[in-house]
Amino acid sequence: MAAETQMKVSDQVAVEINKMNKWFGAFHVLRDIDLTVYQGERIVIAGPSGSGKSTLIRCINALEEHQKGSITVDGTVLSNDIKNIDRIRSEVGMVFQHFNLFPHLTILENCTLAPIWVRKTPQKEAEDIAMHFLEKVKIPEQADKYPGQLSGGQQQRVAIARSLCMRPRIMLFDEPTSALDPEMISEVLDTMIELAEEGMTMLCVTHEMGFARKVANRVIFMDQGQIVEQNEPEEFFNNPQSERTKLFLSQILGH
């Protein structure tokens, strides 16, 4: 398993980030980011708080605008054109730290909304797809409830199913488990591992190092808006090169 995951999964490029820079006002959050993600690759992004991890993956689906350099998603260069952005967003799924389910819609409606309105899928078909993915995340019986009636772990799994219903080519995860109680973390991670095994291209900001070891092809370490180190998980954890990485690892693995 380990040897297999460390192989480059494909030669097809899913995301290509080239000398990308971003500022919040005068604050230089991301500096000269270069990153190529291949189709089917699983990348874990780690780093101290405020290092720009969220901002980086939010740039990939244009939730944040970058000011310099280029981002190419699935062969399309991200531009300011709304149509272009909406199309890329419909190909890229995103899972948030705080789930961000739509509280006024049922679980099923949460999942069918985007396929019906963006993909113009007929309602019946969209519901079938939604039930398929709700079964996959193991909560089909909650389909008619509202998000407020579910536990955090269940909500996060619904959020994953909601993204999958759009049949995305790439999935972005921004600390999907850090708002969850410990006993719910594993149910969400299990879902993500299953997704990884099916060959989904994933970029995942997380501090779950067990997850990183298990599924990542590559771990990226960021600090102060830059990529400081990237490597295969085993190498990254056992043999970190930079001082910053060593310090970071000693802090999160120390206890």
Binding site: N61, R89, E91, F96, A114, V118
Partner: peptide, 16 residues
């Protein structure tokens, strides 16, 4: 409304 609602809608590709 929390900003997350706008972001979730955007991230699914819904237009304005």
């Amino acid at each position: 409304l929390p900003r997350g609602q706008y972001e979730a809608a955007d991230s699914l590709g819904l237009d304005y």
